[in-house]
């Protein structure tokens, strides 16, 4: 299966999904509407190729998602954009500045929230905020309006050490620190990993508000359900971009006929379905299996009859509307 993905991946038109992206000429400083532009970026760590020939573009004011499992290359791509890594090949610009040559300028206009909590655990909330404000040669008061909504929630704990905050609070503090210098572009690496469902929802609401204030946001997440909250997403897998589009278009372009199937013995169900010659794919999604046939002519009744013969009880088979997960699974399998 692994080989299959790599082989088929190389046939994917790079950056083909972005309108006009492939014809984008190497950017000049400050030109164009793209806040982030990535052109054929590759990066390897010794033998592992973390990022392979990635190209994408994020428009000004866009909320752009990098969606993919662990090891897809999301963090590497972000670290290159954040000028923390130098790419092996390709060009990239942030706010019109080259990530290699213009790194000093980029650092002034970009806010970054790494995947791992990276503030001083032995400083208080307030001290952290003041420290980063100073390092960015500004003050908390100067940009307070931008972080106000977020900061009020952690203000009651402003004298608490950052290391003693709860996960959600830490994340809000990290976001405040990333915003303290009023960045044009905000880069968030898996901000919602390990955060509870309520905090996750709140966090995305905060992102939407920030977007409304004109900040371009690049966010990565392993959660497919968060993809629908982005304006556009890049589906990533093994260092490659599989597809780039709006979440709606991605789903619309999914033309396969999809069935949801459930029975009493789910484990045996998935084994049986995968052994069936008319099954193309069968994956667990919540309490159902999402199943596609070898071709779209395979009827629901065919699955039903097959499974009844295998003595499955409490069987349910019905048509299902595809979600972004199904698109991703489909792309991964190509």
């Amino acid at each position: 299966m692994t080989n299959k993905i790599i082989n088929s991946g190389s046939e994917l038109p790079s950056c083909g999904g972005v309108g006009g992206g492939s014809s984008f000429s190497p950017p000049v400083e400050g030109a164009g509407e793209a806040a982030i532009s990535v052109q054929h970026i590759s990066k390897s760590y010794k033998e592992v190729q973390a990022v392979r020939d990635i190209s994408l573009e994020v428009q000004k004011g866009e909320l752009f998602g990098l969606i993919g499992p662990d090891g897809a290359g999301k963090t590497t791509l972000m670290r290159i954009l954040m000028t923390l890594l130098i790419p092996d090949e390709g060009h990239a610009t942030m706010g019109g500045f080259d990530v290699v040559k213009g790194y000093k300028k980029i650092r002034k206009i970009v806010g970054y929230m790494p995947g791992r909590f990276s503030l001083y655990q032995d400083l208080t909330v307030e001290e952290n905020l003041n420290f980063f404000a100073t390092v960015f040669q500004t003050t908390v008061a100067e940009n307070y309006d931008l972080i106000h909504d977020i900061y009020v929630q952690i203000e009651p704990f402003k004298n608490r050490l950052a290391g003693k905050l709860s996960g959600g609070m830490k994340q809000k503090l990290a976001l405040s620190c990333a915003l303290i210098h009023k960045p044009e572009i905000l880069v968030l690496d898996e901000p919602t990993t390990g955060v509870d469902a309520v905090s996750r929802k709140e966090f995305w609401e905060m992102l939407k508000k920030l977007q409304a204030k004109g900040i371009t946001i690049l966010v990565s997440t392993p959660y497919m359900d968060e993809a629908t909250l982005c304006n556009r997403v890049a589906l990533m897998q093994k260092g490659k971009v599989l597809n780039i589009d709006t979440p709606r278009k991605l789903v619309e372009n999914y033309t396969r006929k999809l069935y949801a199937i459930k029975s009493k013995d789910m484990h045996r169900l998935i084994l049986d379905l995968r052994s069936y010659e008319k099954t193309d794919s069968a994956y667990a999604f919540g309490e159902y299996l999402h199943v596609t046939g070898k071709n779209d002519e395979v009827e629901a009744s065919e699955f039903e009859n097959f499974l009844l013969k295998k003595n499955h009880t409490e069987l349910q088979v019905f048509d299902n509307e595809p979600g972004i997960e199904d698109v991703f699974m489909e792309l991964m399998n190509e």
Partner: peptide, 13 residues
């Protein structure tokens, strides 16, 4: 070790 250097490195310090 604590990763703070990562956060600091992206600042114009």
């Amino acid at each position: 070790e604590q990763g703070t250097i990562e956060q600091l490195n992206v600042t114009p310090i």
